[in-house]
Amino acid sequence: MSVLLTPDQTAFLQGTLSMNVGAVGRDGWPCVCRAQGLVVARDRRSLTVLLSASRGRAVLESLDAGSAITLVASRPATHATLQLKAARAARVGVSAAHHAASARCVAAFGAELETLGYAAGLSATLAGVLPTDDLVALRFAPDIVFDQTPGPDAGRVLAHT
Protein backbone atom coordinates (compact mmCIF):
# COMPACT_ATOMS: atom_id res chain seq x y z
CA MET A 1 0.00 0.00 0.00
CA SER A 2 1.32 3.42 -0.89
CA VAL A 3 1.46 6.54 1.24
CA LEU A 4 -1.73 8.57 1.62
CA LEU A 5 -0.78 12.19 0.99
CA THR A 6 -2.27 14.66 3.42
CA PRO A 7 -4.58 17.40 2.12
CA ASP A 8 -1.82 19.94 2.84
CA GLN A 9 0.74 17.94 0.90
CA THR A 10 -1.74 17.55 -1.95
CA ALA A 11 -2.43 21.26 -2.03
CA PHE A 12 1.29 21.96 -1.98
CA LEU A 13 1.94 19.56 -4.84
CA GLN A 14 -0.74 21.20 -6.93
CA GLY A 15 0.59 24.69 -6.28
CA THR A 16 3.39 26.70 -7.84
CA LEU A 17 6.46 24.50 -7.96
CA SER A 18 9.92 23.94 -9.32
CA MET A 19 10.14 20.19 -9.93
CA ASN A 20 12.84 17.70 -10.78
CA VAL A 21 12.70 13.95 -11.29
CA GLY A 22 15.63 11.68 -10.55
CA ALA A 23 16.46 8.07 -11.38
CA VAL A 24 19.48 5.79 -11.50
CA GLY A 25 20.70 4.24 -14.74
CA ARG A 26 21.70 0.62 -15.15
CA ASP A 27 25.33 1.77 -15.04
CA GLY A 28 24.74 3.21 -11.56
CA TRP A 29 24.84 6.87 -12.65
CA PRO A 30 22.15 9.01 -11.12
CA CYS A 31 20.35 11.34 -13.51
CA VAL A 32 17.92 14.21 -13.19
CA CYS A 33 15.48 16.12 -15.36
CA ARG A 34 13.27 19.11 -14.73
CA ALA A 35 9.62 18.10 -14.58
CA GLN A 36 6.99 20.41 -16.00
CA GLY A 37 3.71 19.41 -14.50
CA LEU A 38 2.17 17.38 -11.74
CA VAL A 39 -1.26 15.92 -11.12
CA VAL A 40 -2.23 14.25 -7.84
CA ALA A 41 -4.76 11.43 -8.12
CA ARG A 42 -8.09 11.92 -6.38
CA ASP A 43 -7.34 9.14 -3.90
CA ARG A 44 -4.10 11.01 -2.94
CA ARG A 45 -2.11 7.78 -3.25
CA SER A 46 -0.47 8.37 -6.62
CA LEU A 47 0.82 11.20 -8.76
CA THR A 48 1.41 11.76 -12.44
CA VAL A 49 4.48 13.79 -13.23
CA LEU A 50 5.10 15.27 -16.66
CA LEU A 51 8.39 15.73 -18.42
CA SER A 52 9.77 16.30 -21.87
CA ALA A 53 10.82 13.12 -23.67
CA SER A 54 13.77 14.83 -25.35
CA ARG A 55 15.02 16.64 -22.25
CA GLY A 56 14.54 13.64 -19.97
CA ARG A 57 15.84 10.83 -22.14
CA ALA A 58 18.28 9.42 -19.56
CA VAL A 59 15.74 9.57 -16.75
CA LEU A 60 13.09 7.88 -18.87
CA GLU A 61 15.47 5.14 -20.02
CA SER A 62 16.49 4.52 -16.42
CA LEU A 63 12.88 4.30 -15.29
CA ASP A 64 12.01 2.03 -18.21
CA ALA A 65 14.87 -0.20 -17.06
CA GLY A 66 13.32 -0.45 -13.62
CA SER A 67 14.94 2.33 -11.65
CA ALA A 68 13.25 3.75 -8.60
CA ILE A 69 11.99 7.32 -9.02
CA THR A 70 12.33 10.42 -6.93
CA LEU A 71 10.50 13.70 -7.32
CA VAL A 72 11.63 16.90 -5.63
CA ALA A 73 9.12 19.72 -5.65
CA SER A 74 9.93 23.14 -4.22
CA ARG A 75 7.98 26.36 -3.88
CA PRO A 76 10.37 29.08 -5.14
CA ALA A 77 8.94 31.81 -2.93
CA THR A 78 9.26 29.89 0.34
CA HIS A 79 11.77 27.11 -0.44
CA ALA A 80 9.30 24.67 1.14
CA THR A 81 10.27 21.38 -0.48
CA LEU A 82 8.99 17.82 -0.54
CA GLN A 83 10.78 14.75 -1.90
CA LEU A 84 8.70 11.72 -2.82
CA LYS A 85 10.18 8.36 -3.74
CA ALA A 86 8.78 5.18 -5.17
CA ALA A 87 10.28 1.85 -6.18
CA ARG A 88 8.95 2.22 -9.71
CA ALA A 89 7.08 4.47 -12.08
CA ALA A 90 4.98 3.60 -15.11
CA ARG A 91 4.41 5.55 -18.29
CA VAL A 92 0.79 6.42 -18.93
CA GLY A 93 -0.90 8.08 -21.87
CA VAL A 94 -0.69 11.84 -22.09
CA SER A 95 -4.12 13.43 -22.01
CA ALA A 96 -5.35 16.90 -22.88
CA ALA A 97 -5.66 17.50 -19.14
CA HIS A 98 -1.97 16.71 -18.78
CA HIS A 99 -1.08 19.25 -21.47
CA ALA A 100 -3.20 21.84 -19.70
CA ALA A 101 -1.67 20.99 -16.33
CA SER A 102 1.84 21.33 -17.74
CA ALA A 103 1.13 24.70 -19.35
CA ARG A 104 -0.42 25.90 -16.09
CA CYS A 105 2.53 24.69 -13.98
CA VAL A 106 5.14 26.26 -16.24
CA ALA A 107 3.28 29.58 -16.38
CA ALA A 108 2.84 29.70 -12.60
CA PHE A 109 6.50 28.83 -12.06
CA GLY A 110 7.62 31.59 -14.42
CA ALA A 111 5.27 34.16 -12.90
CA GLU A 112 6.53 33.38 -9.41
CA LEU A 113 10.16 33.70 -10.46
CA GLU A 114 9.38 37.10 -11.97
CA THR A 115 7.90 38.28 -8.67
CA LEU A 116 11.10 37.10 -6.96
CA GLY A 117 13.21 39.43 -9.06
CA TYR A 118 14.35 37.14 -11.84
CA ALA A 119 14.36 38.60 -15.33
CA ALA A 120 11.10 40.07 -16.61
CA GLY A 121 9.69 38.01 -19.44
CA LEU A 122 10.84 34.80 -17.84
CA SER A 123 7.41 33.21 -18.27
CA ALA A 124 7.75 33.47 -22.03
CA THR A 125 11.32 32.16 -21.89
CA LEU A 126 10.24 29.19 -19.79
CA ALA A 127 7.45 28.33 -22.21
CA GLY A 128 10.18 28.00 -24.83
CA VAL A 129 12.47 25.97 -22.59
CA LEU A 130 9.71 23.65 -21.39
CA PRO A 131 7.38 23.11 -24.38
CA THR A 132 4.48 20.68 -24.08
CA ASP A 133 4.92 19.08 -27.50
CA ASP A 134 6.75 15.93 -26.39
CA LEU A 135 5.34 15.34 -22.94
CA VAL A 136 5.66 12.02 -21.22
CA ALA A 137 3.48 11.16 -18.23
CA LEU A 138 4.86 9.01 -15.41
CA ARG A 139 2.61 7.69 -12.70
CA PHE A 140 3.94 6.52 -9.38
CA ALA A 141 2.63 5.79 -5.91
CA PRO A 142 5.07 7.21 -3.33
CA ASP A 143 6.50 4.82 -0.75
CA ILE A 144 8.03 7.59 1.29
CA VAL A 145 7.70 11.36 1.62
CA PHE A 146 10.43 13.62 2.99
CA ASP A 147 10.48 17.22 4.10
CA GLN A 148 13.33 18.55 1.98
CA THR A 149 13.10 22.24 2.91
CA PRO A 150 16.70 23.49 3.11
CA GLY A 151 17.99 23.50 6.65
CA PRO A 152 19.11 21.12 9.34
CA ASP A 153 15.77 19.24 9.25
CA ALA A 154 15.97 18.49 5.54
CA GLY A 155 15.46 14.78 5.01
CA ARG A 156 12.91 14.29 7.78
CA VAL A 157 10.48 11.50 6.90
CA LEU A 158 6.90 12.75 6.81
CA ALA A 159 5.23 9.51 5.79
CA HIS A 160 6.19 6.07 4.62
CA THR A 161 4.55 2.76 3.86
Binding site: N20, V24, G28, W29, V32, A68, T70, V72, T81, Q83
Partner: peptide, 21 residues
Protein backbone atom coordinates in the same frame (compact mmCIF):
# COMPACT_ATOMS: atom_id res chain seq x y z
CA UNK B 1 21.70 33.13 -9.37
CA UNK B 2 19.47 30.10 -9.92
CA UNK B 3 19.65 27.09 -7.59
CA UNK B 4 21.22 23.93 -9.00
CA UNK B 5 20.12 20.40 -8.21
CA UNK B 6 22.27 17.38 -7.58
CA UNK B 7 21.20 13.79 -8.19
CA UNK B 8 22.89 11.00 -6.29
CA UNK B 9 22.32 7.30 -5.73
CA UNK B 10 22.40 5.30 -2.54
CA UNK B 11 24.23 1.94 -2.56
CA UNK B 12 20.91 0.12 -3.11
CA UNK B 13 20.26 2.22 -6.23
CA UNK B 14 17.67 4.58 -4.81
CA UNK B 15 17.92 8.03 -6.43
CA UNK B 16 18.01 11.24 -4.46
CA UNK B 17 17.66 14.78 -5.75
CA UNK B 18 18.48 17.82 -3.65
CA UNK B 19 19.09 21.51 -4.17
CA UNK B 20 22.69 22.65 -4.11
CA UNK B 21 23.12 26.13 -2.71
Amino acid sequence: AIPAVVATASPDGTPNVAYAS
